[in-house]
Write a protein that binds this DNA or RNA. Structure first.
Lengths: 218, 218
DNA sequence: TCGCTATCTTGACGACGTCAAGATTGATTT
DNA sequence: AAATCAATCTTGACGTCGTCAAGATAGCGA
C-alpha cells in the first residue's frame, strides 16, 4: 500500500495524490486504504514518518562519511544531505513539510520527527564545539526553554529548510536559465553552506551579551 | 469576489478553500468565479499576486521606517516584516509559496513576484555596501548569471523564508510550550536576524576567493 | 428597436473522501 | 474436523468538489 502511495507521489506529485489512485495502483478497492490508515491524513502521516526517517538516515550517513574524509565537515554534509533528500523525493518532502494536515499525535511520527531534529541539535552543538550536554529532546515533553544553542540550531535549520523549500517549490526557477539547477545546487553547497558555517564560527564570542541586543532596531 | 476569497482563506485556511465556498460567500452561483478567473488556478494566482504585493509593501514600509530610526537597520526590518506579514495572513502566504499550482505566465503575477525579489536584492546590496549597479532584474528575461551578490541574496531569503515557513506550518510548535509563540518571535527578531546580519558583515572580505572553495568537503 | 457583450444561472459529468453493510479469508479454539 | 472470530477487502451510496456547455438576464451603443 505504502509502496503504491510513494509511486503515485513520485509520479503525479502531491497534487495528484488521492486515496483512490493509491488504491487503484495497489489493485484494491477504493475504500481499502481507509481500513489501514483510517483516512487520508493517516496515510499521509505514515508517509511523512518515512520522510523524516529518510531525512535522518541521509543526514547520519552524510555526517559519518564527512567524518572519515580529510577536511570533511559534518555540518556541511548534513546541509547537503537535507537538500539532496528533498530533491530526490520532492513529493515526500512536501508531505512532511506541507500543509496537508498530518496527525502529530501519532507516536511513530512524533518519534521520527524528534530523531531528525535531534540530529540537527547534535551536529549544531558539535560544530559549535559544545559537546552535548543534557539531551533536552529526550525529555517528555521535550523542553528547549534553557537550550543555549537554540538560536544557532534554528538558524541552521532555517537556512537549509528555506533554500530547500524555495528550490522544491520552483520559486528559484526564474533565475535559472541554462543548466541553472546545477548552478543553484553548486551555489548552495559551495557558498550558502559556507556562509552558514562561517556564521556559526563567529557566533560563539557573541553569546550571550552581544546577541541579547545586537540591533538598535525595534 | 476576491474579498470573499480572502475571507474564506482567513477563516478556513487553504485546506477549506474551494471555489464553491468562495462563490457561496460572495452570494453567487458555484460557476460564477470561473467566468472571471478561468479556473481555481486563476483565482489562486490572483490572490498570490496580492500576496506578493502585500509582502513588498510591508517590506518597503518597514525599511523606510527603519531608515528614520536611530540605529535602525533596513535589513532587519524587512526580515521582521516578512515574518510578520506571513503570520498575519498565513493562508495567503501558503497560496503564494504553497504547492497549489499557480500560473507563472500571468504577467501581473510575474511583475509582483519580481518586485518583491527586487526589494530583497536592493536591500541586500545596501546592507553589503554595494550600492546598486545594473538592475539585472529589469532585464527581460531577468538574468543573474553575473550577479556577484546572488549568494548573499539567497542566503538572506533562505533564512527568512525558512524560519517563516517553519513557523507557519507549525513545525516549531513542539518546542513552544508556554507563550512559546512570542518567545520564538523574539528569538527570530533578536537573534536569528542578528546572526544573519553579522554573517553578511563578515561576508565581504571572503569574496570571492574564500567563498569559491571554503570547504574541503565534496 | 436591434443586436452585442458581459455577467450570471442552471444542470450535468466525473472524481474525490468517507461511511455502513456485507463478503471473504485465515487462524484459533473447541 | 467443525465452529468461531478478527482482520481484510468489496460494494454501494452520499455529499462535495472543479469544470463545462447551454441558456438566461441585464446594460448599452448603433
Amino acid at each position: 500500500m505504502i509502496t503504491a502511495a510513494e509511486a503515485v507521489l513520485a509520479e503525479k506529485g502531491l497534487a495528484g495524490f488521492t486515496l483512490r489512485e493509491c488504491a487503484r495502483r495497489a489493485g484494491v478497492s477504493p475504500a481499502a486504504p481507509a481500513h489501514h490508515f483510517g483516512n487520508l491524513t493517516g496515510l499521509l502521516t505514515a508517509i511523512a514518518t518515512l520522510g523524516f526517517d529518510g531525512l535522518s538516515d541521509a543526514m547520519e550517513v552524510a555526517a559519518e562519511a564527512a567524518s572519515h574524509r580529510a577536511n570533511g565537515n559534518r555540518m556541511a554534509a548534513i546541509c547537503d544531505a537535507y537538500l539532496a533528500t528533498a530533491l530526490d523525493k520532492p513529493g515526500r518532502f512536501r508531505v512532511v513539510f506541507g500543509q496537508m494536515g498530518l496527525n502529530w499525535e501519532e507516536p511513530a511520527f512524533k518519534r521520527a520527527a524528534g530523531r531528525a531534529f535531534g540530529i540537527l541539535v547534535r551536529e549544531t552543538r558539535h560544530e559549535l564545539g559544545h559537546e552535548s550536554g543534557e539531551d533536552l529532546l529526550a525529555r517528555h515533553p521535550p523542553s528547549f526553554a534553557g537550550e543555549p544553542d537554540l538560536a544557532a540550531i534554528l538558524f541552521v535549520w532555517s537556512v537549509t529548510h528555506g533554500f530547500t523549500t524555495l528550490m522544491i517549490d520552483a520559486q528559484l526557477d526564474f533565475l535559472a536559465e541554462e543548466g541553472g539547477r546545477e548552478a543553484l545546487l553548486a551555489l548552495y553547497s559551495r557558498q550558502l553552506v559556507a556562509i552558514l558555517i562561517a556564521a556559526l564560527r563567529t557566533l560563539d564570542p557573541l553569546q550571550p551579551e552581544a546577541l541579547a541586543k545586537p540591533r538598535g532596531d525595534g
